[in-house]
Simulated scan of single mutants.
Amino acid sequence: MAAKIRFHDVVIVLTGRDKGKIGIVQKIYHGNNTVIVQGVNLVKKHQKAIPEKQQVAGIISKESPIHISNVSIFNKETNKPDKIEFFWINGKKTRRYKSTKKSLT
């Protein structure tokens, strides 16, 4: 099964407190279908100091996973969320936008 949303895709958040924010997929967790998007779903974390790792104590901001169904591929041409379809070119399966039929690079 090919994934519609992949690493380094530009996505837009569809629901939640960060609705409408655009970011780049940093990590995908296939087991629970979640993704980490850069600059989206930020949470505060209280962090202990770990001298061995040169880690200081304090409150840090980090991205939390968001469910893959709550994000969609962002089409830069139309400036809207878009759907993905798969098609074959020279025996290779590739992705393209459904609305404009242009291939994702």
Results as ranks from 00 to 15, higher is better:
Ile84Leu: 07
Ile12Asp: 00
Lys83Asp: 08
Glu52Lys: 09
Pro51Asn: 07
Asn79His: 14
Ile59Ser: 06
Ser72Ala: 14
Lys4Trp: 03
Val56Thr: 15
Trp88Leu: 14
Lys44Arg: 05
Tyr29Val: 04
Arg95Lys: 10
Leu14Phe: 06
Ile73Thr: 10
Asp82Tyr: 10
Lys53Tyr: 12
Leu104Phe: 15
Thr78Leu: 03
Ala49Ile: 14
Lys45Ala: 10
Ile59Arg: 11
Leu42Thr: 08
Asp18Cys: 03
Pro65Cys: 01
His30Ser: 11
Phe74Trp: 03
Lys4Glu: 12
Arg96Ser: 05
Trp88Pro: 01
Ser64Thr: 03
Lys101Pro: 03
Val13Leu: 11
Leu42Lys: 13
Lys62Ser: 08
Trp88His: 11
Lys101Arg: 12
Gln26Pro: 02
Ile12Lys: 01
Ile36Glu: 06
Val40Trp: 09
Arg96His: 01
Val37Gly: 00
Lys102Ser: 06
Thr34Trp: 00
Ser103Gly: 09
Lys45Ile: 09
Leu42Phe: 00
Ser61Gln: 14
Ile84Asp: 06
His8Lys: 15
Ala2Asn: 06
Phe87Ala: 06
Tyr29Ser: 05
Asn79Met: 15
Ile59Phe: 07
Gly23Met: 03
Asn90Trp: 07
Tyr97His: 10
Thr34Arg: 02
Pro65Thr: 00
Met1Pro: 05
Ile73Val: 12
Ser72Asn: 12
Gly39Val: 09
Asn41Ala: 03
Val37Leu: 03
Asn79Tyr: 14
Ser103Leu: 09
Ile22Arg: 01
Pro81Met: 14
Ile84Pro: 07
Met1Gln: 13
Ile59Leu: 10
Ser69His: 10
Lys92Phe: 07
Val71Leu: 01
Lys44Val: 05
Glu85Ser: 04
Thr100Tyr: 06
His30Trp: 09
Lys102Glu: 13
Ala2Thr: 13
Asn32Thr: 11
Asp18Phe: 10
Val10Asn: 07
Asn33Leu: 14
Lys4Thr: 11
Pro81Cys: 14
Ala49Glu: 11
Ala49Cys: 08
Lys27Leu: 07
Gly91Cys: 03
Lys92Ile: 11
Tyr97Pro: 03
Leu14Ala: 02
